[in-house]
Every structure is written in C-alpha cells, then in structure tokens.
C-alpha cells in the first residue's frame, strides 16, 4: 500500500488532465449559458464558432512566428488571442445582425432560433475548413512543461512521476482568471447587471430603460471572448481539429444543463462534473489500484469501467440522469 505514489499517479493521468479539460469545457459552457439566458435559445453553432475562433488565433500565431515574435516560455498563441477575439466579435455580431436579429424582431419560436443557429453552424464549419482543412494542426510552442516527469521524480524521489504541461497550467490559470472576471462583470458593473436584469425579466428590463440590443451586443462580445479562449486552450492542450470542436458541443450542453441553463456558476460546476466523470469512467485505474492494494496483489486487467471511445456515452448518461430527475439542473436554472 503506497498512498503517495497512488495519488501522484492519479494526479498525473487523471486529475490534472480532467481539471484542464473541465476548465476548457467551463469556458465553453459559460458561453452557452450566457447566450441561453439572454437570447433564450440553445446555441448550436457554439462548437464550430470555437473552432473558427481558434483558427483565427492559429493564423495570428503563425503570422507572429514568421515575424519572429514570441513570448517564450509562454506559447505565442496567447499573444494572438486578442486577434481571434476581435475576429469572433465581428463574426458573431455579423451573424446576429444578418440572422438572429430578424427572428428577435418577429418574436420567433425558440426552435426557429435553434434552426438558424444550425445554419450558422454549417456556414461556420465551411469557413473553418476552408482555412484549416480537416486534418490536425498543432500550434503549441514555447516551453512544453512547467515541470516534467523526470524533474518531479528527481525532486521528490518517488517512483511515480508527475508532469504539469504548460498548456494545462495555462488553461487552469486562465480559466480561473476569466471566471473571476466574468463574475465581477456580471455582479459589479452596470452593463453586467443590466444583462442579469434582462435575463431575469425582459419586459421589466425594457420598462427600466435597458436597451435590449445593447444587452445582446454585450452578450455576443463576452461569448466571443469566452469561446476564443476555450477553443485556444483546448487546441493548445490537445491540438486543433475542426471536428473535435463540433463534438465538444455535447459535453458543453450537458455541463450547462447539469448546472442549470442560464446559471453561470452552474455551468462551471457542471463542466467540472462532466470532465471528471468522463475521465474517471474511462480511466484505466490499474496503476492507482495496484498502489492502493496490499503488496503482492495486482489487479487483473486495466480496471477501466468503459473504453475511452465511450466518453460521450458518459456525458450522455449524465444528461439523461439530469433530464430524468432534475431538469432544472443542480442550481436552479431559468426554465424547464
């Protein structure tokens, strides 16, 4: 029985990756929940817009790299994020003006909005692939590790190693900063409060002189920031492939619904629950378990509950359980 090595192994292969993945999901789910609470529809184009935003960041990164600009040990991509954000703000606002605003004006049913966002998703997907193709693009540069397995072993003298990759560390820190900033914005600023008011009671917000178009614009700007960051961090961590971003849609929705649609705090908690559940269920516990068992006893097999290929099944199971037992989510969401 070797508790310390078990913990290190668990951290290295599961806890840290899950924390990073959860942070990426959280930023994405926050965007979904914000769009939902202000515009009141499920934003299906979210994943693909994340991909397009990341593509813009990658373009900026390559341009900076060829100009010889870098901020090593940090990845150059961080420097290109503002460019991606500006591009996505313009893109989302254009989508709003060209597509969604009309349906707002005619007070269309939510399903029509969802359908329109499906069309936007299609277009976005096409644009992304025009630029990036369907293959994988890696754009992580700078230092790779905050500390590597070897450094950790040499430092602690433990048998198990622990590595913290730069991308993971940046992800977790950035997500934390962004969440704090978002809550500060929503709870402390006039614009943020007007967003909450609009989400709470649209008619009364109108009566109070809150301009809905302004609220919508602010929402898209924040969404753009969130999704470019989420997409870039995900891409730094796992490489960029357009289709993977589409597939993030399901866990992001699951996270937002689990936390209660329209509730930002819920989206964050939901994202970490989904991430840890996905990783935990598809994680091969063999090494961890063998450290925890008395010496001489080895578990047979991988001690893996489900193959990694079924991580979506885990997300889906979470979604189903929430819908069955508590459709408003852990924290009460806006609408059933």
């Amino acid at each position: 029985m070797d508790f310390l090595n078990a913990l290190v192994s668990l951290s290295n292969f599961m806890l840290i990756p899950a924390l990073a993945y959860g942070s990426q999901l959280a930023l994405g789910a926050l965007g979904i929940t914000l769009v939902y609470s202000i515009l009141r529809f499920a934003h299906f184009a979210h994943g693909d817009t994340m991909a397009l935003g990341t593509a813009a960041v990658i373009g900026g990164t390559f341009a900076l790299q060829s100009a010889g600009v870098n901020i090593a040990p940090l990845p150059t991509a961080l420097l290109a994020v503002p460019f991606g954000v500006v591009a996505m703000v313009l893109y989302l606002l254009a989508a709003d003006r060209l597509v969604y605003r009309y349906y707002r004006r005619v007070r269309a049913k939510p399903m029509i909005f969802v359908m329109a966002s499906l069309g936007v998703m299609f277009v976005t997907n096409g644009i992304t692939r025009l630029f990036m193709g369907v293959g994988e693009t890696r754009f992580e540069d700078g230092e790779r590790f905050v500390f590597s397995v070897r450094e950790f072993r040499d430092f602690t003298g433990l048998a198990e190693g622990l590595a913290l990759r730069n991308a993971q560390f940046i992800t977790i820190v950035t997500a934390l900063i962004v969440m704090v900033a978002l809550f500060w914005f929503l709870n402390r600023t006039r614009a943020g409060k007007s967003m909450r008011a609009y989400s709470d009671n649209e008619d009364l917000a109108l009566l109070s002189g809150i301009n809905p178009e302004r609220v919508v614009t602010i929402t898209w700007v924040i969404t753009a920031i969130l999704l470019v960051l989420a997409g870039t961090l995900y891409g730094l961590d796992k490489g960029f492939r357009a289709f993977n971003y589409f597939q993030l849609l399901l866990p992001m929705f699951a996270a937002a619904i689990l936390g209660g649609l329209g509730n930002p705090l819920g989206a964050i908690v939901g994202a970490y629950v989904v991430a840890f559940a996905e990783m935990g269920v598809t994680f091969a516990w063999r090494r961890v378990v063998s450290y925890m068992l008395p010496d001489g006893i080895e578990p047979s097999g991988m001690v893996q509950l489900l193959p990694v290929d079924y991580k979506f099944a885990v997300t889906f199971a979470i979604l189903v359980i929430v819908l069955l037992f508590r459709p408003t989510g852990i924290f009460k969401g806006k609408v059933l």
């Binding site: 409060k193 007007s194 909450r196 008011a197 709470d200 009671n201 009364l204 009566l207 002189g209 809150i210």
Partner: peptide, 25 residues
Amino acid sequence: GFVPQTSNIFPSMSVEENLEMGAFI
C-alpha cells in the same frame, strides 16, 4: 413610473440591485 401587476421584479437579483435597475436611465 409603472408597476405591472405580475412579474414586476427581477427575482434572481438582490433587492438593492432591483432598485439600481429601476434607476437604470
């Protein structure tokens, strides 16, 4: 000033924030 009969507050916001929103203009 107008007080509607129903849904005349912002339920998830604090009392003080409700008053602030009233003074938005």
